[in-house]
Design a binder for these strands. Structure first.
Lengths: 195, 195
DNA sequence: GTCTATAGATCGATAGAC
DNA sequence: GTCTATCGATCTATAGAC
């Protein structure tokens, strides 16, 4: 990994984020040193500070970037017509998006307590916005009569938790394909919400 | 918190575990120092080593104790007759048991990666044993025809994840009582499993 | 059983040479 | 933009007095 001297402003920045993402996900933010990140990138620790003000900002950027990507991806998706179709689309999107970036997802849920209070508030607002999208779908389903659940807010949290669980065990080379998992979870979600 | 000198073998041990539980849950294992734990107990850092061999053993004891308590509590519970009644009992037990000890639950799920490999294997075996209890109930329900779900192993994971989610938002002084939450989740679980 | 003191290592972040 | 070198703080764990 050692590199000789030279100027690499275009690639070092992204590589720092990649290395930090992998190391934070594996060992946890508090257990990873700036020297470890630097070694993974192939620079000395001091060079990291040309790209980030401090370790906290590095964590925040990773989490904010992940949440922004999530919200952009769901916003860019054309919404199907009808609550059931929208719910089907949401569950498939959620599972697929999260399965594709397990490290960022892991960090986004595990390292919240290592954010400073203002940084935490910013991430929490993004998370609540995403949750609100699902709650709106469930509310629309109740309004149109295609869904029936006594407490939409609680049901929203239950569905999100269920879908998030996929990331703790899914492996691409496992017994089920991602498409099969999506369908099985979609069916459980629809039934749980009284479709 | 400062204390004068003296011998307190009977109470210092449990107090160390209590302090470590609270601090690990709030700040994370890697971010908590032995000095912080000692200060919370009211002793100097060196005194901790009369009770535990090292920091890792302290984490392991907390997690193992939690899992042992969980398995003992469910084993001591008289099993109702019929899969639906057993499922109702399991969901209520799971939610109530976990809601009563949020710190231990948080540590049990968040600090797995900070265990040494042999310690991790021991905890993981206990977790799988617990999961197996729910899988057996679901399997029995399918066998007797009261439940209908295409993949019992996947359904087991989905239900556990859904139930675990309660701990991330439930507050005793919130909108819903724990009993109400239990009932709402029980209903969603039953429906999701095709009861 | 707890104290004080400390060893030996490692941390985040900065300064200045190139 | 990266290097070497380092400051000052902090860490786990241990040694020896009481």
């Amino acid at each position: 990994m050692a590199r000789t001297q030279g100027s690499h402003s275009d690639i070092t920045g992204p590589r720092i984020r990649e290395a930090a993402l992998a190391l934070f996900a594996r060992h946890g933010y508090a257990a990873v040193s700036m020297r470890q990140i630097a070694a993974e990138v192939g620079v000395q620790a001091g060079a990291l500070y040309n790209y980030i003000p401090d370790k906290q900002a590095l964590l925040f950027e990773l989490m904010q970037g992940h949440m922004a990507e999530l919200l952009e991806a769901i916003a860019a998706r054309p919404a199907p017509t009808g609550a059931l179709a929208r719910l089907d689309d949401f569950t498939r999107f959620h599972i697929r998006f999260h399965a594709a970036r397990p490290e960022a997802v892991f960090i986004a849920y595990m390292e919240l307590r290592n954010l400073t209070p203002p940084n935490f508030a910013a991430i929490e607002a993004l998370r609540q916005h995403y949750e609100g999208l699902l709650e709106a779908i469930i509310g629309a389903g109740i309004a149109e009569g295609s869904l029936s659940t006594p407490d939409p807010k609680l049901a929203t949290r239950a569905v999100i938790a269920m879908l998030n669980g996929v990331n703790t065990w899914f492996r691409a080379d496992g017994r089920l394909s991602l498409g099969e998992v999506e369908t099985l979870y979609r069916d459980m979600v629809l039934k749980a919400l009284g479709a």
